[in-house]
Every structure is written in structure tokens, then in C-alpha cells.
Simulated scan of single mutants.
Amino acid sequence: MESLLTAQLKLIPEMSDLLQKRYQVLQMIQLSKGIGRRVLGEQLGLSERDIRKELDALRNQGLIEISRDGAAISPEGTKILMELKEVVREWSGRLQLEQTLSKILHIKEVIIVPGNVDTNTNATMLLSQEAAKFLESILSNDKIVAVTGGSTIASISNFVQDTTKWKNLMFIAARGGVGKDVTLQANTIVSLFSNKTNGSYRTLYMPDSLSEEAYTTMKKEPFIQEMMDLYEKTSIIIHGIGDAEEMARRRNSSEEEIERLKENGSVSEAFGYYFNDQGEAVHRIRTIGIQLKQLKNIEHLLAVAGGAKKAKALLSYFKQAPEQTVLVTDEGAANEMMNIISQTN
């Protein structure tokens, strides 16, 4: 089917716009699991007239079902999405962009979803869905998975399939609490993942940032020693990459501390380390959690971050990221990274 569609697009190039539109409509319906016409149009930036036309076409083909709850994808529609995924990825130019970025960033793989999470909630869902699919592809029995916090990482659990096929899976908090929203903290997120996969979880109930005295004392506690042992046995880490100033404010850093970070050239943050635009660690907080030196021994590193605003932070972090990292991002971040790279070369 892939070669046939590619040939058709070359013969009738104007078909590509219609294909893209209907693919996006179908994809959004799958993500939403019941969505009204008006909301669908707002999400995709299409008029009500266009949405009505596309929904009628998809329903007539048996790809969606429409009820009082809205539009929902049919089994045939799900099948079509799967069959078209790789073709659309290549035809849209994302495949080539993924390959180019993975070479530039010196990492194992880059996966790019359509859109920009800064402006499109649809892109946020696609980002989470793709990360969930990749996670499911690398999970197996007896794995320990460390998870950081944040809204992006939390949303991934929504797209992990409920299953009991894995045995002895354990999800552990990769760091302590950051910010005031408990739903976005690692301790909460690990429970969400474990519920979906019939696994267990371990929490780390303490602040992400500790004083020197508290850090020294807590490292001696038996439950901390147990967590440190689990970190050494971890096979998979799911983590985000933050903007340095944004993360400092989430940690309630003082204005003086934020100013010092700026003076040191801090651009990105991950695992309690702040990096400049050359990928050098210019500051770190005292934290009980996954340490930077441990990353090189982790089998799978799944980094998830999107949005054009994150481009500088991503380029900063990936100057030193382990090569086994897989990045799931969006077109907004990917295109902005390429713009920055082209301007600096």
C-alpha cells in the first residue's frame, strides 16, 4: 500500500492536501475517543463547513461512527491510520528530518509528531501517544523504569494500554517533588504507569532540592539506600528536558539564584543539572534521585519534550546526552532546532 500511495501522490500531487487533511481529522478523532464537530474544527483550525464535509466522507467510508457523544473511530479507521502512518511520515518530510536531527544530536533516534505543543493541544496528545507507543515497545518482564515529573511525562500514562502481559514491572520516582502540583510530580506519575501495566511502584517523598546538611543526613537513611540501589538496576528512564529559568521558578528559586543561573549561561535543565548552550553543567542542585553519571549505563533513555520554545534547551541538553537516547518531539521544536543550527553554522 505504501508504494501505491507514493506513486499516486506523484501522479496527482494535489491529492496530498486532501490526504493530509483527512488523515489529521481521523487521527484527532482517534485521540479524542468521542469528539464534537465544533471542538474538532477548533483543534484542527478548520471551518465548521470543512469539518462537516470531512466527517461525512469518513463516515461514508466506514472509518468513523457518529453518535450523540460525537465522532469516534471505527476498527477500519484504526487500521487505515496504521497503514498510512509510515507513508505520511515519509511524504511529509518528517522521516528525513528525524534522520538528520538524530545525526546532529548524536543520539539513537528522533521521533517527530506533527504540530507545535506551544500552540496546539492536538500536538500535545500526539507527543504523549507516540512516547507511550515507544515505551510499550521496549518494556519487558522484570524491568525497572525510572520516571521524572512534569505535565508532558504525566500525560504519557493516558496513552499506555491497560495490560497484564508484563511480569514484575516496577516504576520508580527518578526525583523528589518539584513544584506545588502533586499530580505532576514523579511520585504520582509512577502510580499511574503501574496501574496501567499491572506493575508496582516506589515513591521518593522528599523535596527535589535539599540543603547540604539534609542531603548528607538523608543519604544515610535505609529507604534512600534502597532507592539508590534501584537506580543502579534501572533499565529505562522516561524524562523531560526543561528550560533553565522555568525549572528554577518551579523550584521556587530566589530571584538572586535565577540571576546567577543566567549569568552562568544556563539554558536547559534535566536531572537537577543546569546546562549552558555548549552542554556544560554550570550548576546542580543537591537531590536524591537519578544522577547524571548514571545515565550512560541505562539501556533505554526516553526523552520527551516539544514546542518551538524548547528548541534552545533541547540543543543545549543534547550536547552531552548519552547516545542511546531516543527523543520524542514535535515539528515546532524540530524545525526551530534546525533554524538555530543553520544560523550558527
Rank of each mutant, 00 (worst) to 15 (best):
N187W: 07
N195K: 15
G242P: 00
G199W: 00
T188F: 05
F171M: 05
D243Y: 02
S209F: 15
I236H: 00
R250A: 03
S157T: 06
T234G: 05
E255T: 12
I237H: 00
M227L: 12
L192V: 12
S194D: 06
G240I: 05
V182A: 09
D181E: 12
G240V: 04
A214H: 05
Q185I: 06
S155N: 01
I156C: 03
V178C: 06
V160L: 09
R202Q: 13
I241Q: 00
S209Q: 14
N198Q: 15
Y205F: 15
I241D: 00
T183R: 02
G176N: 07
N187Y: 01
T152W: 15
S151H: 09
M228P: 04
Y231D: 07
F223E: 12
E245I: 13
E213M: 15
L184Q: 05
N187G: 10
S211V: 15
D243H: 04
D181S: 13
I224T: 08
Y215S: 12
E245A: 12
T217A: 12
L210H: 11
Y205C: 11
G177A: 04
L210S: 14
M206F: 14
K167C: 08
V190K: 07
T197W: 02
S157K: 09
Y201Q: 15
T152N: 15
S194C: 02
D229R: 04
E221H: 07
A154S: 08
S235G: 09
V182D: 05
A244G: 02
P222N: 12
G240C: 10
S191F: 06
G176L: 06
A174S: 12
A173G: 01
S151L: 08
S157P: 04
N187F: 00
R202S: 08
L169I: 06
A186Y: 03
G199C: 13
L169R: 08
V160C: 06
E212F: 11
A154V: 08
A186V: 07
F223R: 10
T197Q: 09
F171L: 02
S157D: 04
M218W: 10
V160I: 14
D162N: 15
M206A: 14
Q161C: 09
M247S: 01
D162T: 10
